[in-house]
Design a protein around this nucleic acid. Structure first.
Lengths: 234, 234
DNA sequence: CGGATTATTGATGGACATCAATTCTAGTGG
DNA sequence: CCACTAGAATTGATGTCCATCAATAATCCG
């Protein structure tokens, strides 16, 4: 909960209302589908700890992860207005979550318009990240995509206090990483080696170490504007 | 304005409030950047006629279009909570737009919570389309991407009454189409020829004709669920 | 009608996929 | 504590899809 506040300048009473509205925490093992495409939703998930992914499957067995969620994210708040999701949500690691029943969301956003704005902002931020991923998937080559995602994750994790020093935990497989990047695991492996050998970054056994952030950003053409870390209008 | 109502089940007084809130219409020529990345926003654009694109440029001159807007879309409503955009918005064709000052948005959403939900829904729908584009860009090959986008555009245009019969106007260049798909204009040209010769669809001189929608959908693995055309919870 | 943009087609090259081993690692049970 | 095993990572060889380069044809527009 602390993390949500950090991102969104919520007042004390607002935070209290939110805290009172959510249920949990609940824990889930890794690799559990916790929201299914098309299924009607009555509550939304606040990720407290761990990593979640939104993804879509194709008939040939390929998968595209469309978003990674870090602690503090409202993972499927968009389901509140959409009614159901167009994608699945899966735990990539063991996760601790809280649930906000939609009835409570209606209630507290009615009581605190500022909270409604913060929630809306949160879904708009997700969309902004989607757009940057579209740019990566459409126009960046493999090494640039990998570099860009590493930059993004470090920035987002630092913003919520879930990264320390020049590294962060990323306990996912290279295949899952590849599913974010629209690449194969094999090629991601080669590209990670390149990044390592160039002294830019090291992603190995569930942990990322950024050795040269400036050059990594430059390689990826990373510009954090799309993360709205300066706390926008509210 | 009629088109917004079609998508969102707004009541008569709500529609009236919205109509009273917006300024315009204004007209813009084609190829005009009408919202600039990073620039602080005081109003949001409702597209009445024409086509708008959200896009990002890369330093090597490449461009990725991240979203196409059709009439009835609120093109940069997300700027209301974000404060500024992470991308530019450009007119692809001559456009007629209305502008909703953010102060008015605040006012009418305060007065009509249902309208606030409808606005929030609208930005969440944009995000859903972003996700489907991520899937295309990450996992579909060139012909599938083209087929998918043609299916999407026909569905969206039909939904707002801007398509007739088995075709619709799409007065953009093959290069702009390619910028949506993460491809080059040259390759899009070849792929469009394939679609034409297979008797699936014809995109030629600013007009799309869908000859075999079922096979086009099947080729693209198009599933309209992500467009939320069934009018979701509100 | 002339100039520019757009579309079209061919030839070549490169980035990433695919296929296929092999090695490494972590978890399990004896 | 150590074989055993399954998944994950790594590396090599080959193939393919799309980019790039280049030229010509078509179309648009003042």
């Amino acid at each position: 909960m602390k993390r949500l506040r950090l991102r969104c300048e919520i007042s004390a009473p607002e935070e209290e209302a939110l805290r009172a509205a959510v249920q949990g925490p609940f824990v889930h093992a890794a690799e559990q589908v916790i929201v299914r495409r098309g299924e009607r939703l009555n509550s939304s998930i606040l990720l407290l700890d761990g990593l979640l992914a939104r993804y879509k499957d194709l008939s040939n067995g390929q998968r595209q992860i469309t978003h990674l969620h870090v602690p503090g994210d409202f993972a499927d708040l968009h389901g509140y207005t959409l009614g159901y999701l167009d994608h699945n949500v899966i735990t990539l690691t063991p996760c601790r979550i809280a649930r906000a029943p939609h009835a409570k969301v209606t209630e507290i956003t009615g009581r605190f318009p500022n909270l409604a704005r913060a929630f809306w902002f949160s879904t708009n931020l997700d969309a902004s990240i989607h757009r940057e991923w579209e740019v990566s998937l459409g126009r960046r080559n493999a090494i640039e995509r990998a570099a860009h995602l590493l930059c993004e994750l470090q920035s987002r994790l630092l913003a919520v206090g879930a990264a320390e020093g020049n590294g962060f935990g990323l306990p996912i497989t290279q295949n899952q990483f590849a599913e974010c990047l629209g690449l194969t695991g094999v090629h991601v492996n080669r590209v990670l080696r390149e990044l390592r050998e160039a002294g830019l970054a090291d992603f190995r056994s569930g942990r990322v170490t950024i050795h040269d952030r400036p050059r990594l950003e430059s390689l990826a053409e990373f510009d954090p504007l799309y993360l709205y870390l300066d706390r926008p209008a509210n």
